[in-house]
């Protein structure tokens, strides 16, 4: 095949994909059979390849000149979006963490300060307790309630010893040992525990296990415990102050010693015969005890109280 301008136009059309399928096949067949044509085609391909390389370097050079000719201030105008993105990326986590810490701290503070959730309780003694004038009066009222057959405590279904309370939680502080006791079947006889189970404690023991005091009911262990508490108070024992504003104890045993005890605490917690318990808070001189509404209990009473106590009595870090 003679090589001329037409041949080159054919090459260009082949490269540009302008040939039909048949035309393309014919051309490729021709390339195989005609060595001169093939050589010419190969040369053109090589030349085009170099021309393109050359074109690429020319374009890159032009682009480099364009880039170099742009003042830095022109780029700056288009920086903010990137900067703000980087700012966002960099500070987003800081802000998120700060917000999370803030929320956690707020929740923690509110959780510590807030009253328990009040869901009401069917409690006939509500007014009597609220209107108590002092701790001693409350105890008297409570005793009256126990004797009252219409009260949940004095109902016919109550334990045979109708003068017992099904469960009372006592916070006992002995030496360095602070324990919360679940006391069952408490006799109305002063200062007697018939059964006690420590459900929460912290600190180390110094002399005697509080349970020991609890079990030794007949020997006036409660008095000893309270005395020990008083000792803690007098010595400004750190363990005591960890709990001081959240003291939980049984009003049943707050005689004169207990009264002093309570003067240093803010809360007096008493269980109810129904699932639940209520809290008496120290009020004003005229109204030393203010009852705040009870927690309602779902499921096992002891577990719930344990949970509540463990939250409320969490030792503070020194």
């Amino acid at each position: 095949m003679e090589i001329n301008e037409e041949t080159y136009r054919l090459f260009d059309r082949y490269h540009a994909g302008e040939l039909s399928a048949a035309g393309r096949a014919d051309f490729e067949q021709l390339l195989l059979s005609d060595e001169q044509l093939r050589n010419e085609f190969d040369w053109l391909n090589l030349a085009v390849s170099e021309i393109r390389m050359n074109g690429k370097s020319i374009l890159k050079k032009q682009l480099a000149e364009i880039g170099a000719g742009i003042p830095a201030s022109a780029f700056e105008k288009y920086s903010p979006s990137i900067k703000s993105k980087s700012f966002f990326k960099k500070w987003w986590w800081v802000i998120a963490v700060a917000v999370a810490i803030g929320l956690a701290a707020t929740w923690f503070v509110l959780n510590r300060r807030s009253s328990p959730e009040h869901e009401g309780i069917d409690d006939a003694r509500k007014d009597a307790v609220i209107e108590s004038k002092d701790v001693q009066g409350t105890i008297v009222l409570k005793d009256e309630i126990i004797d009252d057959d219409s009260s949940p405590f004095g109902s016919p279904g109550a334990p045979a010893t109708s003068d017992t309370i099904s469960e009372v939680y006592v916070n006992s502080i002995s030496g360095e040992n602070c324990g919360v006791f679940s006391v069952r079947a408490i006799s109305r006889s002063p200062n007697v525990f018939n059964d006690a189970e420590r459900i929460n404690s912290s600190g180390s023991q110094d002399s005697m296990d509080p349970i020991y005091y609890s079990w030794n009911d007949v020997s006036g262990a409660t008095s000893e415990t309270i005395l020990k508490v008083e000792c803690c108070l007098q010595n400004s024992h750190p363990a005591f102050y960890t709990y001081a504003n959240r003291i939980v104890l049984s009003a049943t045993y707050t005689d004169t010693s207990g009264l002093r005890f309570f003067q240093h605490g803010n809360e007096l917690m008493m269980t109810d015969s129904k699932p639940g318990y209520f809290i008496l808070q120290k009020g004003s001189a005229e109204k030393p005890l203010v009852r705040i509404k009870p927690y309602s209990v779902k499921g096992d009473l002891k577990d719930t109280v344990k949970e509540i106590i463990s939250n409320k009595l969490k030792p503070a870090k020194k």
Partner: peptide, 8 residues
């Protein structure tokens, strides 16, 4: 294009 996108 250079001015608009180079910084990115």
């Amino acid at each position: 294009v250079y001015i608009t996108h180079f910084n990115m």
